[in-house]
C-alpha cells in the first residue's frame, strides 16, 4: 500500500535519511523503532507530505505522491499524529476534531459532528469537549492528536510516539483504539519507544538507525538481531 523508494532527506549539511526503502502492505501494523534523532519523525514528515524528500519517491497504492501537498494526502487517506502536537489553541476540542473530519475526512458538517463526538469519546476526551485546546495538558493534547487523525477515517494511520507517559490501563485503552482502527481496515505505522505496547500489536518491526533501516521483519526476529541489540537496546 505504501512504498518508499530510495528516499533521502538532507537539512543543509545534515543528512537525516539515506537511500531508504520501505514497503508497508495493506492491513499491516508496522512498528518503527530507533534511537533519538534517528530520523523517525522525518520519515513520517515525508510520508505525510509535511516535507519533500531531497531524493527518492513516495508511492501510495502505486501512485507517486512525492509532490502531493500534505492536505491532499489527508484526502487520499493518510492520517497522522504529530509528536509535537499542533492544536488549534483558541478552538474547542470539539472544533479541533471537526476541522479534521470536515477537511481531511471530507465529511459534511452533520456527519463530521457525529464523527467528532465519536472519536472524542473513544480517545477519552469527552469531558474536555468544550475546552479550548490551548488549555489542555500535554497528555490530553496527544489524545487530541489521535482524535484528529482518527476523525479523518484514514486508510493509512501514522502514529508518532503516542504511548509515552500513559499508565498501564491507559496504554491498554490506547491499544484497543489502535486495534479498532486496524480492524476497520486501516494500515498502521507506529513510531514508539514504549516497546511492550508495540510488541502487542505490531505485525512487523523496522529499526531506523543512522538514516537507514538496519533491520526489519517479524518483531521477535528483529529484536533478536545482534545489530539491533547493539544500537537500540544497548546490549
Amino acid at each position: 500500500m505504501l512504498k518508499l523508494v530510495d528516499v533521502s532527506k538532507r537539512f543543509g549539511a545534515l543528512s537525516v535519511l539515506q537511500n531508504l526503502d520501505l514497503t508497508v502492505a495493506a492491513g499491516n501494523v508496522l512498528g518503527v523503532i530507533g534511537p533519538n534523532g534517528a530520523g523517525k519523525t522525518t520519515l513520517f514528515n515525508i510520508i505525510a507530505g509535511a516535507q519533500v524528500p531531497s531524493a527518492g519517491q513516495v508511492h501510495l497504492d502505486d501512485r507517486d505522491i512525492t509532490h502531493v501537498k500534505v492536505w491532499d494526502r489527508c484526502r487520499l487517506g493518510i492520517g497522522r499524529t504529530y509528536q509535537v502536537p499542533k492544536p488549534f489553541t483558541h478552538m474547542s476540542v470539539f472544533e479541533n476534531v471537526m476541522v479534521a473530519a470536515v477537511h481531511g475526512g471530507r465529511m459534511g458538517i452533520r456527519a463530521a459532528k457525529e464523527q467528532a463526538q465519536h472519536v472524542i469519546e473513544l480517545t477519552g476526551l469527552i469531558h474536555r469537549l468544550r475546552t479550548p485546546a490551548g488549555h489542555l495538558s500535554l497528555l490530553d493534547l496527544k489524545r487530541l492528536e489521535l482524535a484528529k487523525a482518527l476523525a479523518q477515517k484514514p486508510r493509512l494511520l501514522l502514529l508518532d510516539e503516542i504511548a509515552g507517559g500513559l499508565t498501564e490501563s491507559e496504554c491498554d485503552t490506547l491499544l484497543e483504539i489502535v486495534k479498532t482502527a486496524r480492524d476497520q481496515g486501516a494500515t498502521i505505522v507506529w513510531i514508539e519507544h514504549v516497546l511492550h505496547a508495540l510488541r502487542r500489536i505490531a505485525t512487523r518491526l523496522a529499526v531506523l538507525h543512522g538514516g537507514t533501516i538496519i533491520s526489519s521483519g517479524a518483531p521477535d526476529e528483529v529484536l533478536a538481531d545482534s545489530r539491533v541489540k547493539e544500537v537500540y537496546l544497548g546490549v
Partner: peptide, 8 residues
C-alpha cells in the same frame, strides 16, 4: 496544523 488535517 490546519494543513496537516486536510485544510487546503
Amino acid at each position: 496544523g490546519a494543513g496537516a488535517v486536510g485544510v487546503n
